[in-house]
Nucleic acid binder design. Structure first.
Lengths: 175, 175
DNA sequence: GCAAATTGGTTGCAGGCGCAACCACTCTCC
DNA sequence: GGAGAGTGGTTGCGCCTGCAACCAATTTGC
């Protein structure tokens, strides 16, 4: 397991360098991935519920009756994903759909009794998990984390729009 | 687009509550997703390089010649993913493989000349992107972010192990 | 009042990904 | 030195997911 003597040539030719381990997008991706994976085991192992389904349940838990559209905007899920998650939850008897007579394109979605029960069981576990996660942080750090995440998130959406519209950083206005 | 008058019943029946938008795992997932997507456009649109391939390139850029195994551990990628990413990069002529006569199971992987060129072009753009991203943060906040991410990441891995081994939070040792 | 555009939602398809099985090679230990 | 365990790497398979095309219902504009 040592591997001493293995090459791992310390990158000679390139002047430019970028340390992946210190690269914010990478760090965020790894952290989010680890967290999601761990958390999903909590409800997947016990209830056979996948991540998108959990998101839907959670949205329905807080907003009550809504439409698929609303679920999508609140949870930032693609409408395809919402559609399939709701369908899966309906098959499992955790949500119910009812028609909206005012607009027959959309349908109302609600947690069923079983759905509410599951929500009531998963929620504390999820909260515990989040608590355990931030448990390593001081209360100040938690505050920092909150503001930083908010700022980054806003700015990232902004940047995403810019990039989508061709205003890429470093693509034309650079030296 | 207003939708006033739509139901969105404020969740009556459940006593438990969990606000998805404030839930750390969710926030991390959304942020990481936004960032990854934006960033990937930088190298995907211009070079047709996918995220896993970029990771491999970046690792090779900093470590020089390595094996697939090493790439995996440095980039936290599943060996399947490394295998496919390297194969794709080889097809594109961006990396080269050479045999290790000391151990014929593994093979050395290096950036080709073109690979180094691409690395040299993408790296500054990626760095710019990261700079733009943290541009909203004060230098103190950047420091905070760094320590917080490190702590969270360590702790998350820890938690992941615990959960994988059945020591779930809230599953037995609670109240 | 009706054709065209828009919107909520579903689905076929193709690409990406992890798991598990597998192959080739190496190491261990008798 | 040879059988069995272990390791680096690849691949078949099935699941998940986003895109684009689509359907039905609604809204817009003439």
């Amino acid at each position: 397991m040592t591997g001493q003597g293995k090459p791992e040539t310390p990158a000679s030719a390139s002047d430019v360098q970028l340390n992946l381990q210190e690269f914010l997008p990478y760090r965020l991706a790894v952290l989010a991935e680890t967290v999601s994976q761990s958390l999903s085991q909590l409800y997947n192992a016990r209830y056979g519920i996948a991540i998108p389904e959990w998101r839907v349940i959670s949205i329905l838990g807080q907003y009550g009756t809504t439409t698929a559209k609303q679920i999508g905007t609140h949870s930032r899920m693609h409408k395809t994903m919402v559609s399939r998650a709701v369908a899966a939850l309906e098959r499992k008897g955790l949500v119910e759909r009812s028609a909206n007579s005012d607009d027959m394109r959309e349908a109302f979605v609600t947690l069923s009794a079983r759905g509410r029960a599951v929500y009531g069981e998963i929620t504390p576990a999820a909260a515990d998990f989040a608590d355990a996660l931030v448990g390593v942080l001081s209360s100040e750090e938690r505050g920092h984390l909150d503001t930083i995440l908010t700022k980054l998130n806003d700015h990232a959406s902004q940047l995403a729009d810019d990039i989508a519209n061709g205003r890429l950083p470093g693509s034309g206005d650079r030296n």
